[in-house]
Amino acid sequence: MVVPQKVFFTKGVGVHKDKLASFELALREAGIEKYNLVYVSSIFPPNATTVSREEGLKELNAGEIVYCVMARNETKEANRLSSAAIGLALPRDANEYGYLSEHHAYGETALVSGEYAEDLAATMLATTLGIEFDPDKAWQEREQIYKASGKIIETTHICQSAEGDAEGRWVTVIAAAVFVL
């Protein structure tokens, strides 16, 4: 059974005339360009810990197959704002699983996209834990309900946003939760 023990978060932006090259540059800025990335769905493993990007990267080797949850967005339109975010929600009980969510959008600031991704992860976790809430309430109100329940200990996010290049080059933004086995 393959269950990651550690997770780190990273983000990056790349700009290039070629779409694929701009993605590669975003991966480089995020520090994850030398791995064979496999995208997985959004479960934060029970008993896993979050570590810094630097600590996580020390445990990985070039060419290694590395699992991640990734949000990605790109644009070639001048001044078009794009964003990519990963949200995290962890239960108080470390033996339970948490949730990661990915969100990518146009026209949203990093804060708006990041909070949206955080809200998604927290809402998914809240529904599995049986926390009652009004889905029509604002995120900040629901966040307080989730945390006051005593069942959710932490929510957070990471987001990368960037404006489209004035010269028409591709701009790619990524955010990722990277698993370390």
Score class of each variant (00 low, 15 high):
R169E: 05
D93N: 15
H157P: 00
K19Y: 10
A121H: 03
N73Y: 02
G98H: 04
T50P: 03
C68T: 06
I86E: 10
E141A: 15
K58D: 14
A21T: 09
V40H: 07
R72E: 15
L57E: 11
A166P: 14
T49S: 01
Y106T: 09
S22T: 05
E96T: 10
E108R: 07
Q144N: 15
W139S: 14
E96G: 13
K19E: 10
T127K: 12
A84C: 11
L60M: 04
M70C: 08
V15E: 05
E141Y: 13
P135S: 08
S22Q: 12
E24I: 11
A26L: 05
T10A: 07
D18A: 01
P45A: 03
L81P: 00
S161H: 09
T49H: 09
K137A: 14
T75V: 11
A166M: 13
V51D: 03
A175M: 03
R53F: 00
A166F: 11
A121K: 08
T10S: 06
I65V: 14
T156L: 05
L111N: 13
P4F: 01
I158E: 01
R80Y: 04
V38D: 00
V180K: 00
E54Y: 03
N61C: 13
V15C: 03
L25H: 06
K19I: 05
G14Y: 06
M70R: 07
T156I: 02
A78D: 06
K34T: 08
D136M: 08
A85M: 02
L129Q: 07
G164Y: 08
V51K: 05
N79I: 04
A21H: 10
I65N: 10
I131F: 12
D119W: 00
E74L: 00
Y99K: 14
I43S: 10
A21P: 02
